[in-house]
Design a protein around this nucleic acid. Structure first.
Lengths: 140, 140
DNA sequence: CTAACTGCAAACGTTTTGCAACTTT
DNA sequence: AAAGTTGCAAAACGTTTGCAGTTAG
């Protein structure tokens, strides 16, 4: 992934996001490894060594990043919104027992038919969430 | 839909749910018309005429109903979990502007390929959420 | 200099909890 | 009688807000 502050700043600018100190810190932390982060995850990650970004800023920033397409909002768990640094088209396994999300590459899912979008509406995207859980009978 | 308290009680029992007074009230209100209800919706609906069920009981009951398959949890909006009285296989349009959900019959969506479920896991179901929004160019 | 952004703490709305009282079996 | 359920109010939780102070262009 990208890592130098330089590259991060460019990425932010490319998405129309003003690269402030805190935004660079957050983007760097998130893009370092591909994962699904809750707001709390990011808050902890970013302030691990020393307090650098406030909670309000984390929330604002995640919202902004999602709006500008730098990360993607994934909603599978009622308790938490996740922000996915993988913004390419893809889907998810959702472990209903642990709440964990696992990416499914777009190619693995083929949707051969979809209904017409209601009139006056425009399709934004399609999310496929495959709910799974540990199988007691197969994993003794 | 079902409507007599008798039938409702039977439905609850059939799902392994002890048919108490409050649960019958809630089930009756929800099954009366097919829709997507938030917990607050149900709370208001059920206490419209007179206070009959507490908020805590509404939450507990919805959780129980979902667990036992009487209703289905639909998560598309970070702000609210919806409970869908349509438990047959089907999918959803999600209007990202208004937060409204619209059912898509299962037959309208054909998924021709899915990845293998991670080992030791068992598939519970597949949710397809088609995100849509008003199209300014088509609806002036 | 101006507009944009940040931090703090307080406010918010939803969901959960602890526990005594009450139903249901 | 025992087990399960309910209501209440309080707590917890994630998220948002208002505003004064700071930073970026």
């Amino acid at each position: 992934m990208l890592s130098s502050p330089e590259e991060i700043r460019e990425q932010l600018s490319a998405h129309g996001i003003q690269p402030t100190t805190q935004r660079v810190i957050i983007a760097q932390a998130m893009l370092e490894r591909c994962a699904h982060y809750s707001a709390e995850d990011v808050f902890v990650l970013v302030n691990r060594e020393s307090p650098r970004v406030s909670k309000a800023t984390v929330y604002n920033t995640l919202g902004l990043f999602a709006e500008r397409g730098l990360v993607r909002e994934v909603i599978a768990n009622p308790d938490r919104v996740f922000y996915d640094t993988n913004t390419t088209a893809h889907h998810h396994f959702f472990n209903t027992t642990t709440g964990q999300l696992i990416d499914i590459p777009a190619e693995s899912v083929k949707i051969s038919s979809l209904p017409a979008v209601p009139s006056g509406m425009k399709m934004e995207g399609v999310d496929v969430i495959v709910r799974v859980r540990p199988d007691p009978s197969r994993n003794p």
